[in-house]
Design a binder for these strands. Structure first.
Lengths: 409, 409
DNA sequence: CAATAAATAAATCCAATTGAATTATTAATC
DNA sequence: GATTAATAATTCAATTGGATTTATTTATTG
């Protein structure tokens, strides 16, 4: 139905014109979101906890909490006894309060997930194909959603917040890489996926870069909550990433902030390369093919990778060198607290890659650089679909300082 | 008196705890700041304009504008006739509403400026020295402020918002570079300039990196208002910079966001170097010295540079190459709308440097990079002191979304 | 005089705060 | 074991303060 676009920020001639004044209605909306976000972050909080954490008065916290309970957004837990004073009643998010669809469009496969309010994947569809084409994808999304809605049961459909689609940038540039006939994917150029989906379904539709979406998933459900700002790398067919500043995804004016793929790094022989030419899974695929090893297991599912031995080690090595340089460059621009690395590969590959990256980073010139913690992502290969699904929930229920200033109509 | 520190953000275990709830009092404070910021940005606005731009109701805009006028923050202009309806009354900032001191501490000299509310420098002191030492700097700041206050006249001192000091990071690491005896500048290690100044004067004292300050000046008084986000380079003795996101300085968790000096780039022979090893004025100084040319004119004043011919061209060339790489790296991480270059040099050097940087950037691999406009700064070598002076004004009168959430006490 | 726009006044609304009261519990004392 | 004090969570009622709404006034053009 409606189109919500985190990518599309109108190009305003003057800046402040986008931020309006604040008023009571927005204050209430903001405080409600703040409270929901706090409950999400801490898992379970009493009204008094909320008052302390938010700085709101006990009465205000109490009023808002009661109204959220009445709306079914939060659930009352068992009173906690054992401490002086009246026992506190912990409140948690109601997992069934809101559902959201997430779509991940990939090179060889697409995923559709139905996520609940606390981030559990309730239902899941997966489809593989030689290469993605609009008709097929449209059918998968609309058909899949209808199917999952039916499984969900009739009473629950009003609780669906929307659909978030995680897709790579410029799908049409991949024809060669995915073995599609030249020009076969040019249809994507003029295909507005977001509008097309919005025309077919009654919910808000969001579209965001796949790696940025994964970054969002890490922020809410992974290690991200421990850091105010971090740079995120998602090693997929092509590497991509995201930026988190002040605990919020920063996708930038054009939506390409944190794209990281084109970041200049030095290759094996000291020649300048782009990060994506080294630390992408397609590079590993090419290495395997050159050695006459079947690269198919790369694409079945992240859990089905086998240890490819030498070529995998070489790829991890080269990727770690490149990632280390990318992290130093990023840290020289913004003093990120962490660099989080995840990807469409199994945990043991991620672990080796991160370990190697930490080693390589120490060999670089770090004079004057505030180095971030280099750590593994916690969400894994489903991060993109989960991140997509979190978009509608964020847009409607979680903190976003814009709530106070922008008219959400 | 009080210490206000944009650098110092406490290391919080959990993120949201720093952002509290919103309430009416803060809404009013925010709306007042928003209105002052709009008036500053547009130069002159009627009450009706404010209502339209801010989205506030006409009545609210009117009430706040009248109270600001009563407080002397804004001045009523001549009614504009010639259009249907009651003539509108444009309102402007009152230049004399607020004054602010700015201090720039440099390698060979220090500046103290008294700035008015619209950014004019009203009074100015300059001092040179072989190298900066705490006692001398303290005397310059406190003595200079007393002198300028006296010149300002007795009635005006209540209008002083504070002092902002722009100083380089880690002053003590310079001893060698400034020709000071080894260890002579180690006193700076344990000298807390901000506290010391705060102890001597009755105003709030702010301290910020010198290049970040310059970036702030460019944001408010220069080309910055045309861009929501930009990366800024200030070529001083050592190059530094700043980051602007959503029209606000982003100084990061540790205050070192936008430091840019340690950014890895390739040197003349393809060897990895840090940006500051190439694009700093000390490098030019060394080149001149090696050729037995007197580098003194570099340090008198930016307007007194002479054309050093070949070595200057070589330095500009090398610096442009390095800056171009830095800009591509920055743009790969965040899709900045502009890269603004300024420095402690005359306009004609800046112009040559920017021109060369644009040329060099085009030779790099820009596949997939959203390139920013590469433009000259408009503020010039005084940017650091002006940026310093703008800190107290920003902190108290201009928009900063934190107004709504944080208790400014 | 009609239309238009800016500006203001009065009344209303709404959410947060303040202050007092209520409730449920533990800890200390007899 | 019973009683009392202290503490903490929660809620009720009254107040506050700023934004909005509605209506009115003022100044101008055509």
């Amino acid at each position: 139905m409606s189109i919500e676009d985190p990518l599309q920020q109108p190009h305003l001639p003057l800046v402040v014109s986008s931020t309006g004044g604040a008023n009571q209605v927005r204050v209430r909306a903001y405080n409600e979101r703040l409270i929901l976000s706090l409950v999400r972050l801490y898992g379970s909080l009493s009204k008094a906890d909320i008052a302390r954490l938010s700085g709101l008065s006990a009465q205000t916290a109490s009023v808002i909490m009661r109204s959220l309970e009445k709306e079914g957004m939060i659930l009352r837990g068992d009173p906690v006894r054992g401490r002086v004073g009246q026992p506190s009643v912990p409140m948690q998010l109601n997992p069934d309060a809101v559902y959201s669809f997430g779509v991940k469009i990939g090179r060889r496969s697409a995923d559709l997930v139905l996520m609940d309010f606390v981030g559990n994947i309730r239902l899941h569809l997966h489809e593989t194909f030689p290469y993605p084409l609009p008709d097929r994808i449209m059918a998968f999304i609309t058909g899949g959603m209808a199917k999952l809605e039916a499984e969900l049961g009739p009473g629950q459909q009003g609780r669906i917040a929307g659909v978030g689609i995680a897709a790579p940038f410029e799908l049409w540039n991949w024809a060669g890489e995915v073995g599609a006939p030249k020009g076969a994917m040019d249809v994507w150029r003029d295909f507005d996926l977001q509008s097309e989906v919005a025309a077919k379904i009654p919910y808000p539709v969001f579209l965001q870069n796949d790696a940025t979406s994964a970054c969002g998933a890490e922020l809410v459900f992974g290690k991200g909550s421990a850091y105010q700002d971090f740079v995120y790398f998602f090693v997929g067919s092509f590497i991509g990433g995201g930026i988190v500043l002040n605990s919020a995804i920063y996708s930038g004016r054009t939506g390409t902030a944190g794209a990281v793929g084109p970041l200049p790094v030095l290759g094996k022989n000291g020649e300048p390369r782009q990060l994506l030419e080294i630390a992408s899974i397609v590079v590993l695929e090419r290495m395997l093919r050159d050695l006459d090893i079947d690269p198919q297991p790369l694409w079945y599912s992240a859990d089905q990778w086998i240890d490819f031995g030498e070529p995998l080690s070489a790829w991890i090595d080269a990727s770690a060198k490149a990632l280390a340089q990318a992290i130093v460059a990023a840290a020289s621009i913004i003093d990120f607290g962490a660099a989080i690395i995840d990807g469409g590969f199994p945990g043991w590959v991620r672990e080796r890659l991160v370990r190697a990256t930490i080693v390589e980073a120490k060999r670089l010139d770090l004079q004057g650089v505030v180095m971030p913690d280099i750590i593994e992502g916690a969400v894994g290969s489903q991060a993109r679909a989960i991140g997509g699904a979190s978009l509608p929930i964020f847009a409607r229920y979680l903190t976003d300082q814009n709530v106070l200033f922008k008219d959400l109509s």
